[in-house]
Amino acid sequence: MNFVEFWLLAPSIALGGATGALTRWGTFRAWGESRAAAALLSVNLAGSFALGVFYAVSPGLPSVVVAGLVAFTGGLTTFSTLMVACVRDARARKWGRAAILLVVHVGGGTVCALLGAYAVMLAIGA
């Protein structure tokens, strides 16, 4: 993507990002403050799965749609909150918990992305 394409796709990116972030906020509200860790895991895994789905269907879609869908997954998932949660655990000397958090989010996200793409291939019979 160059800067001209960026400006052409900007409304789609903005809409996708805002929708993803509001979905993330709604998910955290639904889980409640005491279950924020579960809320963070659910948005990161669901967003990674959605990215896998969009990755598999993107060759047949216009770039304006792909940009919006990818921005949605970017808005739904968050890396910064995961890092701050890890630091909080590490500073409390809960090293194992911090390591597990990283493995579950990054490893689980990768598995979910692969599953998303695989689900599309199964659905279209590829």
């Binding site: 906020w25 990674s48 968050t78 990054v106």
Partner: peptide, 20 residues
């Protein structure tokens, strides 16, 4: 925090890089 920084950063892109 939730709006700007949460959306500025992304885990799905990292998962996608590793997966694909």
């Amino acid at each position: 925090t939730t709006g700007f920084l949460g959306t500025f950063t992304t885990l799905s892109a990292l998962s996608g890089f590793i997966a694909f």
